[in-house]
Amino acid sequence: MKDEVTFSLSYEQLLQETEEEIKRLVNDNWKGTRGFLSRWEQASGVQTFFTVLAAKCTDGTDKAQQLRVREDEIRLQRLLDFRPRGQL
């Protein structure tokens, strides 16, 4: 890449944007519709992407950071539990 572009985004901003996007995708108004499974899969991808970015941006030796990321990952996973029963 010829001209690298960088920007700053705090962990809290990343977490907030991720949470809002997951909530938007699994909004209760979409439950029971045929498109819900696709939206849930998108939300799952957003959660996975957050986890990858957070893991890459933390200090691997800082146990407090690792714990915080893991706790936030679990909280985001709970948002995905809004899927209808019987659907993956």
Rank of each mutant, 00 (worst) to 15 (best):
F7T: 14
T58M: 12
L15P: 00
Y11F: 08
L9Q: 13
R78C: 13
T18Q: 01
L80T: 04
L67E: 09
F7D: 13
G86H: 11
T61F: 05
L37F: 05
R85I: 11
D81P: 06
E19D: 11
T33R: 12
L79D: 08
Q13E: 15
F50T: 00
S44T: 07
D28P: 13
N27A: 15
E4T: 14
F50G: 00
W30T: 03
E41W: 14
P84H: 13
E21G: 06
E21P: 14
L67A: 06
E4R: 14
G32E: 00
L79Y: 15
E4N: 09
G32S: 04
W30N: 13
N29Q: 13
I74L: 14
L80H: 09
L53S: 04
E71H: 07
K23E: 13
F36Y: 07
Q77Y: 06
G35C: 14
R24P: 06
T6R: 03
K31C: 03
R70C: 07
Q87L: 14
T18H: 04
A54I: 00
N27M: 07
N29D: 08
R70A: 09
R39N: 01
P84F: 10
D3G: 13
R39A: 05
M1P: 14
Q77C: 04
V52E: 01
Q47Y: 09
D59K: 13
R75E: 06
L37S: 12
R85A: 15
D59Y: 01
R85Q: 12
D81K: 15
N27H: 09
D81F: 15
E17I: 10
L80Y: 10
D59T: 05
K2W: 15
E4D: 12
T48V: 11
Q42A: 15
E41T: 14
I74Q: 09
V69H: 00
I74E: 11
R34S: 13
V69W: 01
V46N: 03
E71P: 04
L14C: 02
F36P: 02
S10M: 02
E17F: 07
W40T: 07
R24G: 11
R85M: 06
W40E: 02
N29V: 15
W40G: 08
Q42R: 08
Q47E: 05
E4A: 12
R83Q: 03
T51N: 06
L14M: 10
G32Y: 05
K31W: 06
E41I: 10
V52F: 06
L53I: 10
F50A: 01
L76D: 00
S38Q: 05
D72T: 01
T61P: 01
K31S: 08
C57F: 05
K56I: 12
R83A: 08
K56N: 05
F82H: 12
R75L: 10
F50Q: 00
R24T: 05
S38A: 08
R78H: 08
F82I: 14
F82V: 11
V52H: 00
E12Y: 01
G45T: 07
